[in-house]
Amino acid sequence: MNVMQAGIRKSLVIAAALVAVGAVTGCHKKASGIDPNALGPAPAAPAAAPTATITADPLAIDLGQSVILNWRTQNATTVTIDGIGDVSINGTQTVSPANSTNFHLTAKGDGGTTEANVRVTVRVPVAPTAPADADMGSEAAFHQNVQDVFFDYDSYDLRPDATASVSKAAAYLTAHPAIRVVIGGYCDDRGSAEYNLALGENRANAARTALIAAGIPASRLRVISYGKEKQFCTEENESCWQQNRRGQFSLDK
């Protein structure tokens, strides 16, 4: 039964192919030939438009080296190159540009105007860039403008005073886009070491989130929690504990 079905299907395919071939042949015959009505009287021949090419060899030089310009035009009466002036209609010239230049050739003739361009790249030795410090501002300026934020005990929410200093920090960081920052999360030495490391992470992240909200790209900010493993102050009183509950900003060098 399968064999029989396959046989029927094959004969159908062959029939369809034959019909298709016949149709294509028919169309071809109809489309051939030129309609005589489409041919009108030929217009008067215009003056030939000018053509122009310009090349430079080599296309890229170091500062002080020279380059040969070579141009060819046809049907042109005047040829000018910007920066050089009128030149002959075909020619070569050696030039030594001080910086990368577009040589713009204009060819005018009876048939109109044509332009051609070539760009010569001049490699100017790059002066060593100023050290990154200049971009990043001084350490002192950083700490004056990007001040550490302090937290209430067992809290990682930014207080109003912290929000203000984060705004100031964000402005400074926006003005100095080269600066990258490490935000350290710190806790006072009460409580448990493991929990304080997690809390320090939340504190540093609160400062990071506020800076990102103020438009500082996340890629410039790095967070490390130190929990209570690194202390700023080791006395057992509230002013000391407050010193230790902080998000510390430092330059990520």
């Binding site: 992470e201 992240n205 990071r208």
Partner: peptide, 9 residues
Amino acid sequence: YSSSRTGDP
């Protein structure tokens, strides 16, 4: 373990 890879421990 505790990890803050998403920003929150």
